[in-house]
Design a protein around this nucleic acid. Structure first.
Lengths: 137, 137
DNA sequence: TTCAATGCAAAGCTTTTGCATAAAG
DNA sequence: CTTTATGCAAAAGCTTTGCATTGAA
């Protein structure tokens, strides 16, 4: 596992500061740009390694978009935690599936299929009500 | 848009043959390996371009795992129709979630969230039992 | 003093592009 | 003949690794 200690460094503090000051998910590149824009230079490698370590400690979440670089956000940003999302393939609408049934689904997947769902990485795709109607016309 | 005509070539036929003979999702690398194993050499670039074109025509589906290379499968591969899949983020294992509970989940999403799930496009991500254990050691 | 963190350069992987050649229609 | 496809090599983009150095505890 992750046995090593974590030192408090200027770089780590700066990275956290940047991530906290921006609500959204950021790529490593974006974090570096904002760091140098604010006068705090941190090597790209350090950003990668810091985020990787924080992710293994649970401090940040990492998401893989279909294309391009991975994005990261602080795990204590609770808006999207602990539930999967549902995206409309036509209009892009995002629905947070934060309900009892979907929690039961996670339990079902764990018990019956032996998988631990990573809800942060999971997005269901479909059509929202409006787009479904518009398409069937 | 995608206006150009599509020529019938040996390479395209071979790629389709390999994908049809293997039930599951394959990476470009895997397709190339199976191609040369069966004596049919096709350049990696050609595999990329063929899959990209077929995807834009709707003939294949492309999925992005959290880590590593994208995987592709034929869109007319009926084995995987009508249910969602579950992929292990660590070892790549694919589980077909073809059970009553997951059908109820689709109904739930339709009724309670107003979305029509596109199960062919939906992949849940997590850790399979073995990888979950190995990681927590 | 010890061990983690840093940062540069270099390497790794997947994917894309340029370009000359080959093949399909 | 015209247009698409092929395949090599090279480039591109993101991420990881090697290694000497710096800095935290």
């Amino acid at each position: 596992m992750n046995t090593g200690k974590t030192y408090k460094t200027r770089q780590r503090a700066e990275i956290v500061r940047i991530m906290r000051s921006s609500g959204d998910c950021l790529t490593v590149r974006e974090i570096c740009e904002r760091l140098s824009a604010s006068g705090a230079n941190v090597g790209e490698t350090t950003v990668y390694r810091t985020l990787e370590k924080m992710a293994s400690e649970g401090g940040v979440r990492r998401y893989e978009p279909g294309k391009g670089a991975a994005v990261y956000r602080l795990a204590d940003d609770r808006r999207c935690d602990g539930h999967v999302h549902l995206r409309c393939l036509r209009c892009g609408a995002l629905e947070h599936l934060d309900c009892a049934f979907m929690r039961r689904m996670e339990a079902h997947i764990e018990k019956e299929h032996g998988f631990t769902l990573d809800s942060g990485r999971t997005v269901l795709y479909g059509l929202c009500g409006r787009c479904g109607k518009e398409i069937s016309q």
